[in-house]
Design a protein around this nucleic acid. Structure first.
Length: 822
DNA sequence: CGATCAGTCTTTTTT
DNA sequence: AGACTGATCG
């Protein structure tokens, strides 16, 4: 069940697939698109569109099937065609379950199946993420587990907040028992199907917690689970864990779904965790018609409990597994693919495969070093502008990929400065904004008064005189009498609240009850509008004329729009889902991530996202940035071989997103936690074959700064360089910019000559005047001779031989400043 | 009781 | 640098 696109947040238009894939579908299935009513034609020859391996996978109907699908090998096409093929061969759509990891993937799959089949039958398929499908099944069966059918789904913030509450209740120090840490521990336990009791009895786990000096995590876990249950809430991990418990404890339920889902397909199988694995195993046990698709080289979610073992051992889990390898890549140029293949070859123990392509060799991969993170941003923005002119790309053809969300800022600024429209995916999601969470909390409490997290948010927002003291008293009373906070509030007078407080509480209770009464007679949107009015939230935000206040007001309006759109969009979810209730809306928004709202295909913008978020996507031009030690690979993941290999797979994913052109950038120094640090280039850069790489330098910064000589004399020129220098001086007054914490980077072969001291009064000359044969001076590499000149007039690249500076370099004249000697 | 200010901590990656 | 927390003042 892919959820209907939440286009109100992005655009009004209906979804199309991502540019690239949409194009490829069109070319393959153009007949259908031109004559949408003649689907019959499609049905006859859909197998012709496949290569031999793909056809082999599609036409394998019964029995376990593992498709090892290399990057860009047409995986989604195979999956969708296979669904069509199953149905063509008499399988009922109601009996097919297809699980993905992201809503985006689910949506794309659903759309593509609809294009092949026509929409009416496709509607009956179960296509969705693990979490959303299980949430849906759990809603139907929740009563068996003692949960209300309208259970709330806690997002990570809610869950951490519960953890924090419990840590405080136990009088533990939340500096030591950090909610984040504890929650991750609980999450890991659930993902390995370990409940609180087992957790506390498991010696290994207890040993780990003892060693970490946090022996009470098991206790916290136990209380956490009980609290969630009391609140009528499940967290993300519960959607898997409770699903497993449900199937395991109720044979009749298991039986029902085993016979419903006769054919099961799982995308991105390499990213499944033990909970998902066991559920699939249970569901598929009768028919064993399990088709898994994955690529061990793209397993990047072990931090979420995924184990690569699931795919590596699939063949051993079932008898007579049919294995099909898709090894032809249709996406990337030979250069890009060669680099990717060589990089990933540094990992051990993979499923053997040989990814190849018929595509042209294409451009070399550009490896660019800059002095600072800001210059990196500037370089990327400039290059995008240049590429648009030179190669007629549009904004939507570009993506900037980074390891951590925090890196987006520098690029945002530079893109904004050049008036290049962009959009960031991930990061703080719309639904995580405070004003949205506050508003949504009203809806949550209205739906489920046991939802304490939501209740605590709104009990005094907007201010209504129910302060901290009252809140704490309520919590204590609730715990004492073992009832919910809401019940305490309902009986406030009885519990001895007095005067203004009791009036405020009663008014609050009456208000929420009036919302509840509306639920039966009005749709979600009408209720939400009344909530906005009665609570005064909308008015209050409207009266706040600050910039942020305005933005908050607009956000709430947008939320209302999205609810409206939700209630008005025809149901695509199949019969089982009881339509447009507030409950399904709330479920949708908590399971919808920001990346999923990115189906805004009409907007012609540059995209920025983490590499994780980019999995499954492709772009004509890719910039992978921040390729530096401690950043990528992350400093957190260089301690074991397994961690490092996962980082390498991540790099592999980044490379293989690119269709035509790929830039890899890294900066000498960048701001992290507010101070300047220097990083060595990523070790991964050394693993790439030189043959396909073009190295150049976009560093205009001062070498002496970077190495801490600190002298300010003799700096005549270089506008942007001057700014940078000023800023560095401010950051560390009197202190050269160097790094006490990390060892001095070993001199690297490519930048051996770091000793050149520019001639006093060094000033760069106009790049336009430079020609091959000239003698020039570079701030870092010293004196050299220009041997060649290339590039557009506004972005000239000189090849310069520096006898003492490490040989031949490509210098981008827009960034690096050269002085003409003669 | 609530608002303002200084001090602390942060960054993996996400359903 | 910025978000978040806790202490102090109106």
């Amino acid at each position: 069940m892919s959820f209907s696109p939440h286009a109100a947040l992005a655009s009004k238009s209906h979804v199309h697939c991502l540019t690239a894939s949409a194009k490829s579908i069109e070319s393959q299935f153009h007949f259908v698109l031109l004559h949408p009513h003649k689907k019959v034609v499609m049905k006859e020859n859909y197998l012709d569109e496949l290569n031999e391996r793909q056809r082999e996978a599609v036409t394998h109907i019964n029995g376990p099937l593992m498709i090892v699908a290399g990057a860009g090998s047409g995986k989604t096409k195979v999956l969708t065609t296979r669904i069509a093929h199953l149905m063509r061969n008499g399988v009922d759509a109601f009996n097919i379950l297809s699980l993905t990891f992201t809503n985006k993937a689910a949506r794309e799959m659903k759309e593509r199946v609809e294009k092949i089949l026509g929409g009416s039958e496709a509607r009956n398929l179960y296509i969705g993420t693990f979490h959303s499908v299980f949430a849906r099944l759990l809603r139907a069966e929740a009563h068996r587990l003692g949960y209300p059918n309208d259970f709330t789904i806690y997002d990570a913030d809610d869950a951490k907040s519960v953890v924090k509450t419990i840590v405080n209740e136990l009088n533990l120090d939340d500096k030591h028992y950090k909610p984040n840490f504890v929650y991750n521990r609980i999450s890991a336990a659930k993902n390995s199907l370990m409940g609180p009791e087992e957790y506390q009895l498991d010696h290994l786990v207890q040993q780990e917690d003892m060693r970490a000096n946090r022996p009470l995590i098991g206790k916290i876990y136990d209380m956490y689970a009980k609290r969630c249950f009391k609140n009528g809430a499940m967290d993300f991990d519960d959607l898997l864990f409770k699903m497993y418990v449900l199937l395991k404890s109720f044979p009749e339920v298991l039986h029902k779904y085993q016979h419903k889902f006769k054919y099961i397909m799982i995308d991105e199988y390499q990213d499944t965790n033990p909970a998902q694995y066991e559920i699939i195993k249970l569901l598929g046990a009768v028919n064993e018609n399990i088709c898994v698709v994955g690529d061990d080289a793209q397993s990047i979610y072990s931090f979420r409990g995924a184990t690569i073992q699931n795919i590596l051992q699939f063949e051993k889990d079932y008898d007579d597994v049919k294995v099909v390898k898709l090894e032809q890549n249709y996406r990337s140029t030979k250069s890009i693919l060669s680099v990717a293949n060589e990089v990933i070859a540094h990992n051990k123990g993979q499923i053997e495969k040989n990814l190849w392509t018929d595509n042209t060799e294409g451009d070399t991969i550009k490896l660019v070093r800059t002095m600072t993170d800001n210059e990196e941003g500037k370089f990327v923005a400039d290059t995008i502008a240049e590429q648009k002119l030179r190669n007629h790309y549009e904004n939507r053809d570009f993506v900037i990929l980074y390891r951590t969300n925090a890196q987006s800022r520098a690029f945002e600024e530079c893109l904004r400065r050049k008036a290049i429209p962009y959009r960031i995916f991930g990061g703080l999601s719309f639904y995580q904004r405070k004003e949205i969470k506050d508003f949504v909390a009203y809806l949550r409490v209205t739906m489920n008064t046991r939802d304490e997290e939501a209740l605590k948010r709104i009990i005094n927002y907007p201010v209504r005189g129910i302060g901290k003291t009252t809140l704490e008293k309520t919590i204590v009373l609730a715990n004492e009498h073992n009832i919910t906070m809401w019940e305490v509030l309902e009986r406030a007078r009885e519990f001895g609240f007095k005067g203004g407080t009791v009036e405020a509480i009663e008014a609050f209770v009456v208000m929420i009850k009036s919302f509840q009464a509306m639920l039966t007679t009005h749709n979600a949107y009408d209720v939400a509008v009344v909530v906005g009015k009665s609570t005064n939230i909308v008015k209050e935000l409207f009266n706040d004329k600050t910039t942020e206040g305005l933005a908050r007001y607009e956000n709430v309006q947008e939320l209302l729009n999205s609810i409206k759109e939700f209630t008005e969009t025809p149901d695509e979810e199949g019969e089982l889902l009881d339509n447009k209730t507030m409950g399904t809306y709330l479920q949708q928004i908590t399971l919808l991530t920001d990346a999923d709202q990115g189906n805004d295909e009409d907007s012609n913008v540059v995209k920025l996202m983490t590499i994780h978020a980019a999995k499954g996507l492709e772009f004509p031009v890719v910039f992978t940035v921040g390729l530096e030690e401690t950043l990528f690979p992350s400093g957190m993941s260089i301690n074991t071989r397994e961690e490092l290999e996962e980082e390498r797979r991540l790099f592999y994913v980044a490379i293989t997103r690119a269709k035509a052109r790929l830039w890899l950038t890294h900066a000498n120094s960048r701001y992290r936690f507010g101070n300047l640090v220097q990083n060595e280039p990523s070790r991964f850069l050394e693993e790439m074959p030189e043959k396909f790489i073009d190295r150049s330098y976009a560093g205009g910064g001062s070498v002496r700064n970077a190495f801490g000589s600190g002298s300010t004399s003799g700096w005549g020129g270089g506008g942007n360089m001057g700014n940078m220098f000023d800023r560095m001086q401010k950051k560390t007054p009197g202190q050269p910019v160097s790094q006490p914490s990390s060892p001095k980077p070993a001199p690297r072969p490519t930048s051996a000559a770091t000793t050149h001291v520019p001639t006093p009064g060094f000033a760069p000359d106009d790049p336009a005047e430079m020609e091959p044969g000239m003698q020039v001076e570079h701030q870092k590499f010293g004196f050299g001779t220009i041997t060649a000149m290339e590039g557009a007039p506004n972005n000239r690249i000189a090849t310069v031989v520096f006898p003492k500076g490490g040989g031949e370099k490509k210098i981008m004249l827009n960034y690096a400043k050269l002085r003409i000697v003669r």
